[in-house]
């Protein structure tokens, strides 16, 4: 899933300056699951914005709606009518969602209410962790299912650096050293010979920006 966090309320308030009729639009997929962009968050954000408006003597239209998925046009049809009534859409989807909406409704400004962080998964209550960088060249078969491109802060392909610190990373003692994890799991699986395999420099042509994929 895609993990995103809400921008500071002050930033959102600033972004919305000059707009009088705003649709706060949630996404019921990834950002709903990471508790930053679903139905509930749309309610809280719209209510916060209304309170801020009232405190400063404004009275703007703040509509609320959440679609199943912002990143597919089929799911955006249901807001056709609402879009006609507003002069801006504040999206609580990821960066893909914001762009899908703005491609679908190119005449109306679509503003990002979130900062998109990474592709990851929930680890424990209220904690999400990054797991994939979408590098286009998966080597998880060689690294015991632990991605060093993503989970090593330097993205090293050939083992740990000297900054490995009792199994943690030099940049953040909260984070595990990916290569220590890989070593331990390969050892457990009896596949340590994979650790000694040389990985050549990454092929950055595996995904050429902007990525495009056609299924055959």
């Amino acid at each position: 899933m895609i993990v995103a966090k809400q921008k500071d309320l002050e930033v959102i308030v600033g972004m919305l300056q000059g707009y009088e009729r705003i649709l706060v639009l949630g996404c019921g997929t990834c950002t709903a699951i990471c508790l930053t962009g679903g139905d509930r968050e749309v309610g809280i954000l719209a209510s916060s914005l209304r309170l801020a408006d009232k405190v400063s003597g404004k009275n703007r239209l703040l509509k609320e709606h959440t679609v199943e998925r912002q990143c597919e046009w089929e799911f955006l049809d249901e807001i056709n009518d609402q879009v006609k009534e507003v002069d801006a859409i504040l999206s609580l989807g990821c960066g893909v969602g914001v762009q899908a909406i703005s491609e679908r409704f190119p005449d109306i400004p679509v503003l990002p209410g979130l900062d998109t962080l990474f592709m990851g998964m929930p680890q424990e209550e209220s904690v999400w962790v990054e797991r994939c960088s979408g590098c286009g060249n998966c080597i998880l078969d060689k690294t015991a299912g632990i991605c060093p491109v993503t989970r090593c802060t330097k993205g090293l392909l050939n083992g740990p650096c000297g900054g490995t610190n009792n199994g943690k990373c030099e940049v953040d003692p909260e984070k595990d050293c990916a290569w220590t994890l890989i070593y331990q799991r390969l050892e457990k699986q009896g596949k340590l010979e994979l650790f000694d395999e040389y990985h050549p420099p990454r092929n950055f042509q595996a995904v050429v920006r902007p990525g495009r994929f056609t299924i055959k």
Binding site: N158, G159, G162, G167, T180, Y183, F195, D196, Y198
Partner: peptide
């Protein structure tokens, strides 16, 4: 003196 040392030794070998 890295801890754990084993992964470092493998990297040394590499």
């Amino acid at each position: 003196e890295a801890n754990p040392i084993e992964p470092q030794l493998h990297k040394f070998k590499k």
